[in-house]
Design a protein around this nucleic acid. Structure first.
Lengths: 117, 117
DNA sequence: CGCTTGATTCGACAAACGTCGATGTGCTGA
DNA sequence: TCAGCACATCGACGTTTGTCGAATCAAGCG
């Protein structure tokens, strides 16, 4: 069987980093977190991410979110970037491929920027 | 004259956008927020931002934070990017220039990524 | 005024990025 | 088995980005 499930499984159960106001980031953590922020640094990618995150169940088929004003290969390219950054996971179900948000990763980014405590 | 309040010039009193899980971003908001995430998408910039945010009072002199492994003009360049994105403000006090974090802007980014509600 | 230190701006350049059309791959139904 | 749809990959392109050294601006001091 073709096991080409896109291997994303970074061990990101470890919630990186306390709030940025409480301690200085290490170089390694800065590299890791910067890569995640970079994934959201493009308007098209952020819209794709937004569409998926706001979908019921936090997941969406590519066919549901392609309407962002760029070509289909470009959408695929951006989704790959988001997946490589660990913000999304993907899964093929029959004809369609579904993308899901990785809540713990996103929560980690949010926590890092939490300045209200 | 009264004390020096950190001049937050951007009209960002409007706290952009509910949590990303609750509604899809508009194109305009996506452009705005992507620019902010882009500011944090470089490891050197993220470290500079971290150094300032974790400093007492949430501010730091350039001279305190320029040890990030790149030349001094490059540090200045990155600080400018962070300032242009609205994440930092700057103020000259005598010989030194101090950079402060813009808490409301950072809080807005954090809130956008808040997936736990 | 000159000199020193701190910080920004300028000009250049290699690397990375976003985009596209063409092509490839995987699945489904006729 | 084959046509057709959904999605990914490839190759190419113009643009943007991060970096540097050199030059410039700003403030303090002798």
């Amino acid at each position: 069987m073709s096991n080409l499930e896109l291997t994303v499984l970074e061990p990101e159960a470890v919630p990186c980093c306390p709030p940025i106001t409480s301690a200085e980031l290490s170089v390694e953590d800065a590299v890791r977190m910067a890569a995640m922020f970079k994934a959201l640094s493009d308007p098209v990618r952020l819209r794709l991410f937004s569409k998926i995150a706001s979908h019921p169940g936090g997941e969406a088929c590519v066919c549901d979110i392609q309407d962002v004003g760029v070509s289909q290969p470009t959408v695929s390219h951006h989704l790959k970037k988001l997946r490589e950054a660990g913000l999304l996971t993907s899964e093929r179900r029959g004809t369609w491929v579904y993308y899901q948000v990785a809540p713990s990763v996103v929560a980690g980014m949010s926590a890092l920027l939490d300045v209200n405590r």
